[in-house]
Simulated scan of single mutants.
Amino acid sequence: MHTESYEVEAGFERRTLRSETLIVLALSLGASGVSALIDFIGSVTRPGALKDQAATLVGSQAPGRPWLDLAWQVFSIATALAPVALVAHLLARERVGMPAIGFDLTRPRLDLARGAAVAAVIGGTGLAFYLGVRAAGFNLTVVPESLPDVWWKIPVLIASAIQNAVLEEVIVVGYFLRRLGQLGWSPNAALAASALLRGSYHLYQGVGGFVGNMVMGVVFVLLYRRWGRVGPLVAAHSLIDTVAFVGYALLAGKVGWLPTG
């Protein structure tokens, strides 16, 4: 079983690690959490019920101009992964690298098998939870994608799903837990902080998005501690988002149970 028991190597003082962690969060999902909070305040203070408002996850960035839109989509995906490159650099400087958090290709089949099992459980449960909290008025209508019907639509949706997974699991689970352990946080406090961070940047979806992703965050931390790898979590998250994005693209407007914006 994997536990966060870390030693701070020579030259890595706690003050440096604390500043480094805050900078990584400010450049990535910490900033997203603040943005989501502002979005949520705007939604709850806007006239009308939350479920009558929409939160679009992957939308067109240049309507009516497909090649320019594609360029923006690729640019957005690539730049969103810049904080992951920063984490890779910081872990390499620490002389442990990404294998220290289990983000490598040493066990691809096992990671994918575990990820598929996790996705099967969380994906179905998450959809049922979303439909329930939206019906109760605690969530916006989540529109996974609103891209034009062009040849690159599905590849971009899959790439966006993988980008989300890599960014979130590497930073929120692998890197964040490692740094909190090095800073002396207890396992329970680190788990709570990681889950809260994950919930915070989904708050733009509503209370349901916040709570549901916090629960997912707790599960993912426990699985990471058991397996010692973020690889299965990246696989699970990629599969969940791919099914959500591509499934919505194929089913929106064709089935009655799927809300559309």
Rank of each mutant, 00 (worst) to 15 (best):
T242M: 11
L131V: 11
G30P: 05
V8T: 13
T106L: 14
Q163H: 13
A128T: 08
A82T: 05
K153Y: 12
G115V: 03
A92C: 13
A116F: 10
V87S: 00
A26L: 03
L191K: 08
Y201I: 02
A62S: 05
K51M: 15
Q73H: 04
A119S: 12
Y248P: 01
A190F: 02
L140A: 04
W72S: 14
G206A: 04
D52S: 14
Q53W: 10
F210L: 09
S194V: 01
D149S: 10
I23F: 09
L223R: 05
L91N: 08
E94M: 15
E94R: 15
W72H: 14
R134S: 10
G126P: 02
V207A: 09
A71Q: 10
V143E: 12
Q73M: 10
H2K: 15
S32Q: 14
G11P: 02
L22P: 03
G209C: 01
L167S: 04
F210T: 04
F210H: 00
A252L: 11
V84L: 05
G261W: 09
A159I: 05
N213F: 05
F176P: 01
G247A: 05
Q205V: 01
L140R: 06
F75K: 10
L183N: 01
A116I: 10
E9S: 15
A26W: 06
A54P: 12
E20A: 14
A161S: 07
W151V: 07
A10I: 15
A54D: 07
A117H: 12
V87K: 01
L180N: 07
T3W: 15
S200N: 07
F75H: 12
V118M: 05
A71K: 12
G102F: 03
H2M: 15
H237I: 06
G137Q: 07
A85P: 09
L196H: 00
T79S: 14
A31Y: 03
R14N: 12
A82C: 09
A128W: 06
L81P: 02
L147H: 04
A92H: 12
V211I: 11
P63N: 08
L147F: 07
N164T: 07
S35M: 13
V218P: 02
P108C: 04
V150R: 08
A195M: 03
L191M: 13
